[in-house]
Design a binder for these strands. Structure first.
Lengths: 184, 184
DNA sequence: CGCGCAATATTCAACGTTGACTGCACGCGA
DNA sequence: TCGCGTGCAGTCAACGTTGAATATTGCGCG
């Protein structure tokens, strides 16, 4: 669990700190870090005895903030979780794939256009990531984060090529579309 | 929504039919098609007026099965949803990325080993997909499904290369690990 | 000095996902 | 004909995710 790992690094921390840290990692681009998710996870982990509440102090009349730290049980669970994620491969779910399954519901020209458009978006995304990698400076501090971006770029680029290729097949009529005449 | 699209194609259908059809598409590998998800979606769509209950017949003393069909409003919504998914790009979430963020929590040798292992799994996955593409025969009926597999393969292969590259950088000490001496 | 905007810190209901569970029917072998 | 495994059809509680809403403090700017 991501949250557990973050608490482990920065303990003792409160929910908002976790959130800020994750945002500074750009984690919103590769994980579920909506505020609700974080506080929910914190509470669940505390319930399970993986985290311990340290203090719950109040500054002025603002919401009380509860700080947490990792218990030995939590540390063990983190190591276990980490190993599982590193050693087991589960193909990720891409929300575009289900949409692509309905390709035959689209008129040919729109399908081709959309695929080309998508290829462009993908390359834009990849180029954007590349630029950010060159400009953001703190890579020497956490060089592996740069690798995460590189992976995203690589994925985007192959998918762009794939879009282009499929667009061509579709254009040639090798894949059928909503406006095909139903000759057989 | 995937469910809406399936009902649209096969209407009138009941939940179990939808499930069977999706499984025959191997949809469990690229979408959320747990039985609960399907029935939930069906009910929600019916509530929203996108689907209409047609009959709810009973065979023997088995659970009554409710069949649905798409309303005009549902058809419109489907077209709209489909367009949105085709024209908008949202980078997908890969559960490995968060795990990779904790690379520095792993001893160097384990990190290298895990990455190499993952590269192998990815290639295995890609090769498996390739074999299935050659053996399963009904591609001429839905050739675009083959393209979906091809995309998965391509993704797996670039990621395998990436794993290998990162493993090398890690081995060389260009990325740091849990067992680094903390000389600054 | 005071206005408003950004930052702080969390809660909540609504929505979505999961998979184990129930319970019947049907065909097949012993 | 008995019993058992497989296929049919759906339910449910538990879990996870979302983002808008809330309410306060501090800071910059005219």
């Amino acid at each position: 669990m991501l949250i557990l790992g973050v608490v482990r690094i920065f303990q003792p921390v409160h929910g908002y700190d976790v959130r800020r840290e994750l945002l500074s990692w750009h984690a919103d681009e590769w994980a579920n870090v909506a505020p609700g998710s974080i506080y929910h996870a914190l509470k669940k982990l505390a319930d399970e005895g993986l985290l311990r509440e340290v203090t719950t102090e109040q500054v002025g009349a603002r919401p009380a903030r509860t700080t947490y730290e990792v218990t030995p049980k939590g540390e063990a669970e983190f190591q276990d979780l980490l190993r599982r994620q590193w050693w087991e491969y589960r193909p990720p779910l891409d929300p575009f794939v289900p949409a692509f399954a309905f390709l035959p519901a689209l008129p040919r020209r729109e399908g081709v256009a959309a695929l080309r458009h998508r290829a462009q978006q993908l390359r834009l995304f990849a180029d954007g990531a590349e630029v950010r990698m060159d400009s953001d400076i703190d890579w020497e501090h956490a060089p592996h984060v740069a690798e995460m971006f590189r992976l995203g770029m690589a994925h985007a680029r192959v998918e762009a090529d794939w879009c282009e290729a499929v667009a061509q097949r579709l254009e040639k009529g090798e894949l059928h579309a909503a406006d095909d005449k139903t000759d057989h």
